[in-house]
């Protein structure tokens, strides 16, 4: 067992493991800082991530009761204004709950759920979960990627498996203790730049069972590896956007920022912002 006590798994670190075992080891077990540039141009990449974080914050404000007309975006922030207009044009009619009267819906924005899996805790932070009066549970994830990713790419992401799986495992906390049947769960990726083209993934019992044994197997595999077994990936493409590339002797320059791959890093930025939330003044906290 090589993992630190009370190690917590998430879709982000599991995705890293699947992408490259060594990256997982460096980032989460050894917690190595290696501050190289991840994608070029660095400023464009950074600004995009910040815009994404601001958009998430605005939606959270609206869902927390701040009147939408009081949430301002400067017209100079063209991209953000467009995303915000796209969001507002939904008029609350999100895919999966279009026909449900609003008063019969329960909204759970920015919710974190966790459950024990394979002797560890698995955790997910959801942008929004909506429960309808008919007992449907719809997971929404706001995507602000430059390009709209293909369905196959999304289907392949750990997020698409971890989020519905964990909602089935831990969702009884939202349903007054009633179990959550996998058939009642679905996951929707909504693209701020492509508001009319969301991607919906229904869920069901066989998928839940498959994910259950897959995730348990993956966690068992990780916790059983010896330190030397965290090998470098064979897919060199992975190294293009990885900050450890000089440590692994896998090149000098970062890859071009194209957008699709920004999804993973956006999650990291919101993790970072989440952390910063909890670190106010030194001394006073």
């Amino acid at each position: 067992m090589n993992l630190p006590d009370n190690f917590v798994f998430s879709q982000g670190n599991l995705q890293d493991y699947v992408d490259c075992k060594r990256r997982f080891q460096l980032r989460y077990i050894e917690r190595r800082s290696w501050p190289a540039i991840k994608a070029e141009p660095a400023l464009v990449h950074e600004e995009w991530m910040q815009l994404g974080a601001r958009f998430h914050r605005m939606v959270e404000q609206a869902l927390s009761g701040v009147p939408a007309e009081q949430i301002n975006v400067s017209p100079e922030d063209e991209k953000l204004s467009l995303w915000w207009r796209n969001y507002l044009s939904l008029h609350g009619k999100l895919t999966g709950i279009e026909n449900a009267p609003e008063e019969e819906l329960s909204f759970f924005p920015e919710l974190t759920l966790s459950a024990g899996v394979g002797g560890y805790r698995l955790l997910a932070k959801y942008d929004l979960i909506v429960i309808t009066s008919a007992g449907q549970l719809v997971i929404y994830d706001w995507k602000t990627s430059v390009k709209r990713p293909r369905r196959e790419w999304l289907a392949d992401r750990l997020q698409t498996r971890v989020y519905p799986y964990l909602l089935v495992r831990a969702g009884q906390t939202l349903t007054g203790g009633l179990p959550v049947p996998p058939e009642k769960v679905s996951m929707v990726y909504w693209f701020a730049g492509y508001p009319d083209d969301p991607e919906r993934f229904p869920y069901n019992q066989p998928a839940f069972e498959r994910d259950s044994s897959y995730l348990e197997g993956l966690i068992n595999e990780i916790s059983g590896l010896e330190p030397t077994q965290f090998t470098l990936t064979d897919v060199l493409q992975q190294c293009t956007y990885c900050q450890y590339r000089s440590l692994c002797d896998r090149g000098t320059r970062a890859g071009e920022f194209t957008g699709e791959e920004a999804e993973g890093t956006l999650a990291e930025l919101s993790d970072l912002l989440f952390d910063l939330d909890t670190i106010p003044e030194i001394g006073y906290d």
Binding site: V66, Q70, N72, R121, L123, T173, D277, P280
Partner: peptide
């Protein structure tokens, strides 16, 4: 630990910052 939502462990400064961000408008 039982499966479910996660409690918030915060300081008063952390809570203040979160609320100011959320209700800034």
């Amino acid at each position: 630990l039982a499966a479910g939502g996660l409690p918030d462990v915060v300081t008063i400064g952390g809570l203040a910052r979160r609320m100011v961000e959320l209700f800034w408008p």
